[in-house]
């Protein structure tokens, strides 16, 4: 009898605490759509390629070999070579590195800077809000690529300058998003309750407002990453981006497109890479939104 009661106790306890963890639910919803899984695989492959580029690429990307100039894809050069005999596959592999570094660095920089500015604007209100937000409005007046072009033109070539230019061009979106979220979150009773237990403004801002308004940021970052990689490719294509030593996908398309009729692989292969990665990041952003949106809980 005592045994049965103990057993029942155990069952009741295990049932009351046996809930699916948030993480498990998140993973399940995220991987439910096949296209998201596909996107994740593409992103993982790109990241691995970027990290292990020195070991994966068959040739030095900048090694000139005039004997092998403008080869069609063959056994020696899987994706052919360009005018100077540089191996296209190696250049694409090294290009993944630049694209990801520029993409991730820009994303992080603009997300951190943008959300800090946005939170300040939303939380302080008044003059601070007016100054920050009107400045962002002015930035928003320019299309992202035009602004980046302008800045890259002023700052000159080089990866660092491209990152700065793209960061500034990306700022307004993050700032506006975070400003709006902060405005909404700071009116909640728990923020007032927080202040009533004596927490400082900074503490309230970073410990209570930030975590409550961060969710849309995650989605925005992942979708923006694709756009940034595309913008960087665009800048390189226009020749204002990186120096010639640094291989980028956009640069590859730019130098390859004049051979489109005779050697399509030169422009087509890097272009496909840009398309796939941008597509994957957008799909990932979409999937993250579905998985993180509390309103879709139970539906998905």
């Amino acid at each position: 009898m005592a045994d049965t009661i103990a057993n029942i106790d155990q069952i009741v306890q295990s049932q009351s605490r046996a809930t699916v963890s948030e993480w498990q639910r998140f993973v399940r919803t995220l991987t439910q759509r096949k296209v998201v899984v596909f996107a994740l695989i593409i992103i993982a492959l790109t990241v691995i390629t970027a990290i292990f580029a020195p070991w994966l690429s068959p040739y030095d990307p900048n090694e000139k070999n005039f004997a092998d100039s403008l080869q069609q894809p063959n056994r020696k050069h899987w994706l052919g070579t360009d005018l100077l005999g540089k191996d296209t596959l190696s250049r694409i592999i090294w290009g993944a590195r630049t694209s990801l570094i520029v993409g991730i660095a820009t994303c992080l920089a603009s997300a951190i800077l943008g959300s800090t500015l946005g939170m300040l604007a939303g939380y302080m209100g008044g003059v601070v809000n007016t100054i920050i937000m009107r400045f962002m409005d002015a930035l928003m007046g320019f299309p992202m690529i035009v602004l980046a072009l302008l800045l890259a033109g002023v700052l000159g070539n080089g990866m660092q300058n491209v990152i700065i230019a793209l960061t500034v061009a990306n700022l307004p979106g993050y700032t506006r998003l975070m400003c709006g979220m902060t405005l909404a979150v700071k009116e909640n009773d728990y923020i007032l309750a927080q202040k009533a237990i004596g927490s400082s403004n900074l503490r309230t801002l970073f410990l209570h407002i930030l975590p409550n308004s961060f969710q849309p940021m995650i989605i925005m970052i992942s979708t923006a990453l694709g756009g940034i990689i595309l913008a960087e490719a665009g800048l390189s294509f226009l020749g204002i981006g990186l120096s010639h030593e640094e291989v980028t996908w956009g640069g590859l398309v730019a130098s390859g497109y004049s051979y489109l009729s005779t050697h399509p692989m030169l422009a087509f292969a890097p272009g496909l890479c840009v398309m796939l990665v941008v597509f994957s990041f957008n799909i990932l952003g979409d999937g993250l939104r579905d998985a993180l949106d509390p309103r879709l809980r139970g539906v998905l």
């Binding site: 909640n188 009773d189 728990y190 007032l192 309750a193 927080q194 202040k195 009533a196 237990i197 004596g198 927490s199 400082s200 410990l207 209570h208 975590p211 409550n212």
Partner: peptide
């Protein structure tokens, strides 16, 4: 003032459903 709020004078609000931070 911060050391008084919560330390010397504490407050309970009328909406328990929204007075706690949902993510902590």
């Amino acid at each position: 003032m911060r050391s008084i709020r919560g330390g010397k004078i504490a407050m309970i609000f009328q909406e328990p459903m929204t007075s706690l931070n949902p993510v902590l």
